[in-house]
């Protein structure tokens, strides 16, 4: 069964017909040619498909595209603007936060989400009850735990997020 949906992807309005079974990740990659989000596990376990949906970081492999009709989706590719790469992307390069790069688009989107969540005062599992969180290394590691890196670039990833968090 098919449905017509409209997505705003990396600032551009895209209308596409999808099978109701298509995930947001498959719609982006296979139907719209937006290949920044990667398919690692396809089961929510690795974070490589992370994108920003209406400003929040989400895995794109566990949602149906039809359910996201009308959503604003930003992928790692869409984080680049007229001034060049996003500060998080620059920090990843400067801190050697990648090796093969497969997990990187998901890591970068997740990091952008982490910064916004911390800014909004959201606690994490390592925030002391009632405290206002600060992005210490322990906080960054906990908040980024949904993004696995098979190359083990974790020290660089933590350093990159710390640098942008200031």
């Amino acid at each position: 069964m098919e449905a017509d949906i409209t997505l705003r992807v990396d600032g551009e309005e895209r209308v596409v017909t999808v099978d109701t079974r298509t995930t947001l990740l498959d719609a982006l990659r296979d139907r719209l040619g937006v290949t920044a989000p990667k398919k690692g596990c396809d089961h929510g376990q690795c974070g490589s498909c992370t994108v920003l949906v209406d400003g929040r970081r989400e895995v794109s492999c566990l949602s149906l595209a039809v359910a996201k009709d009308g959503a604003e989706v930003v992928t790692a590719a869409g984080l680049v603007d007229a001034d060049g790469p996003h500060p998080v992307q620059r920090a990843f390069v400067d801190n050697d936060a990648l090796q093969c790069g497969f997990c990187t688009p998901g890591q970068v989107c997740s990091a952008v989400g982490v910064l916004a969540e911390a800014e909004a005062g959201w606690p994490s599992a390592v925030t002391a009850p009632g405290a206002t969180p600060e992005l210490t290394d322990a906080e960054i590691k906990e908040r980024m735990s949904g993004n696995l890196c098979r190359c083990g670039a974790y020290p660089g990833i933590v350093a990159a997020v710390r640098e942008v968090a200031g």
């Binding site: 974070g47 997740s110 606690p123 599992a125």
Partner: peptide
């Protein structure tokens, strides 16, 4: 992250934050 939950039911906030990942909890 809800202020009333953090203040009055910290047990619930702790349990939620111990589950899954940031991306999954957002959904």
């Amino acid at each position: 992250a809800h202020p009333l939950v953090r203040e009055r039911y910290p047990l619930l906030s702790e349990a939620l934050l111990s589950g899954a990942s940031g991306q999954l909890r957002n959904v």
